[in-house]
Design a protein around this nucleic acid. Structure first.
Length: 508
RNA sequence: GGCCCGUUCGUCUAGGGGUUAGGACGUCAGGUUUUCAUCCUGGUAACAGCGGUUCGAUUCCGCUACGGGCUACCA
């Protein structure tokens, strides 16, 4: 059955931005599809009319696009099994719900919200475990199991609101074969008569997802562990639809957990954990509240997916850096762990650092240039390349490019008093002035000549490197950071370097 | 509460009946260095507990504890 073509889907609900857990689920699906030459499908699960967020679908597509996780079939480009938005497939689902009713695997229910609440209250007193609509209670409720055929038809004809519920079997063991967890057995009396078709005319997730997975010929359902409890229900639905032979395989992924307290990572966590939970920056449509994203924080997409891939999966070797293609090559469901994992912001930065180190100086300059331009500064690209070559080792996130190089583009506006206190000695001004005079005589200003000159100068003044270099750095950069002082001076040029020293001497 | 899933260094994890329980991030110490980083070297640090099976269990089984998920006309 699944011999020829692997087909997997990522099926988010457009109720807001995707968080990194969702991206990871999409990534695993993508890797799996690519590895086996299958198809990767995006299906938008927008059956809840009350929870739609207009910009969410766009956000999801843009996010995965940024990651390089590309779909073969999706709502935009379509495909042979479209449409790919459940809202555009609305008329499909009723037919299948009715089929289930006809075959006595489901039934109409007319209970109002109040009646349901009453039932739950009543049952909670005796045994909360059975406070559900199911074999034990369905015969006390208002549904096509308790009403006569005529009554049911009359109510339907009168347009009375109804739902369709699955009729969970009385006494049955349901087996879910999970590719990650093995065999999971659940007894039917732990299941309830879930609503399949809502009174607003829309299917619930449970119905829609199995109908669509079947129609779209999905071979493997790879999704978060939060779905494991309803997997037996889905197995039952495949059976009742008569599709059990073509039922997809299941793989329930362990969840991404909050690094601090308890629970799974959620969209609500925003930035409060000290790292972004979203791939791209997100602005809440109502609140206008802005949550940061990995892209805007300065992560490279290739680092981002590598980080995500390793949250729950590992190759079993000691290699940690993987390109997308290498991930595709190495990926396997068998090597996905069973337990949830917490995101480690420090390691994430380290990963990004590794990928930044792989970039050429030119590529780094390309990443730095926009910042420079945005500040209204104009510099020759080659100059920027030279700067990047010098500071590249200290860059973890893209903004670090600027944070570690700004003094190549603008003079310091302040001088760290803390550093001054540490390195500024009574003899320092004299030494610096002497240097100024000597350096002024240097004809060909470059790093090597400067260095040679300095050695002579320092021995002449009986001073050590640090005694002069540290003050010079403070005057030129304003702080105790940056590459070698002669590197900086060499790049800045004679005029600018000496000017900064003179100005600094007065202002410090 | 019930059902289901899980549990190896602080974190991500490898491993698996007999190992010095390995790696990475972090951290600590040392080295390099004109500063800060980088980089290099070294150290720290884990099999949740209790029973059982076994010559032997961290590895298999059970129980307990802890963590997580689900328990909607949400997905």
């Amino acid at each position: 059955m699944k011999d020829s073509m692997i087909r997997v889907r990522f099926a988010p609900s457009p109720t807001g931005p995707l968080h990194i857990g969702g991206v990871r689920t999409a990534l695993y699906n993508y890797l799996f599809a690519r590895k086996y030459g299958g198809k990767f499908i995006l299906r938008i699960e927008d059956t809840d009319q009350n929870r739609q967020v207009a910009t969410a679908e766009e956000y999801i597509m843009e996010s995965l696009d940024w990651c390089g996780i590309l779909f073969d079939e999706d709502p935009r480009k379509g495909g042979p099994y479209g449409p790919y938005r459940q809202s555009e497939r609305k008329e499909i689902y009723g037919h299948y719900a009715l089929q289930l009713v006809r075959n006595k695997f489901a039934y109409y229910a007319f209970d109002t919200e109040e009646e349901l609440e009453q039932m739950r209250q009543r049952l909670k007193i005796s045994d909360p475990a059975f406070a559900q609509y199911g074999p034990a209670t369905r015969l006390e409720m208002k549904n096509s199991l308790t009403l006569t055929e005529n009554e049911v038809q009359q109510r339907l004809k009168d347009g009375e609101p109804f739902v369709i519920r699955i009729k969970i079997p009385e006494n049955e063991e349901i087996i879910v074969n999970d590719l990650i967890r093995g065999e999971v057995v659940v007894h039917s009396h732990n299941l309830d008569d879930k609503v399949l078709f809502k009174s607003d005319g829309w299917p619930t997730y449970h119905l829609a997802n199995i109908v669509d997975d079947h129609l779209m010929k999905i071979t493997h359902v790879i999704r978060g562990e939060e779905w494991l409890p309803s997997a037996p229900l889905h197995v039952l639905l495949y059976r009742y639809m008569g599709w059990e032979a073509e039922m997809p395989e299941f793989a329930h992924l362990p969840l991404l957990l909050k690094p601090d307290g308890n629970g799974k990572l959620s969209k609500r966590d925003g930035d409060r954990l000290g790292f972004p939970v979203f791939p791209l920056q997100w602005t809440g449509p109502d609140t206008q509240e802005v949550s940061s994203g990995y892209r805007e924080t300065g992560y490279l997409p290739e680092a981002f997916i590598n980080i995500l891939a390793f949250l729950g999966w590992n190759p079993g070797t000691e290699q940690e850096l993987f390109s997308l293609n290498e991930l595709i090559d190495q990926f396997s469901l068998e090597r996905i762990g069973k337990h949830g994992s917490k995101f480690d912001p420090d390691k994430a930065k380290w990963f990004n650092h590794q990928y930044l180190k792989l970039k050429t100086d030119e590529e780094l300059a390309g990443l730095l240039s926009p910042t420079i331009e945005n500040r209204g500064l104009k510099f020759n690209f080659n100059y920027i390349v030279t700067v990047c070559a010098l500071i590249r080792d200290r860059v973890y996130l893209i903004p670090d490019l600027w944070n570690n190089s700004w003094f190549f583009f603008i003079p310091p506006s302040a001088y760290s008093q803390q550093v001054k206190q540490k390195i500024w000695k009574p003899e320092t001004p004299g030494l610096v002035k002497a240097f100024l005079e000597e350096a002024g005589k240097l004809v060909e200003w470059n790093k090597d000549n400067l260095h040679a000159m300095l050695e002579v100068f320092l021995s002449g003044h009986n001073a050590k490197m640090g005694q002069l270099m540290n003050p010079l750095r403070l005057l030129v950069v304003g702080d105790n950071q940056g590459p070698g002082m002669t590197d900086i001076a060499g790049i800045l040029g004679k005029e600018e370097t000496l000017r900064r020293i003179r100005v600094g001497l007065e202002r410090i």
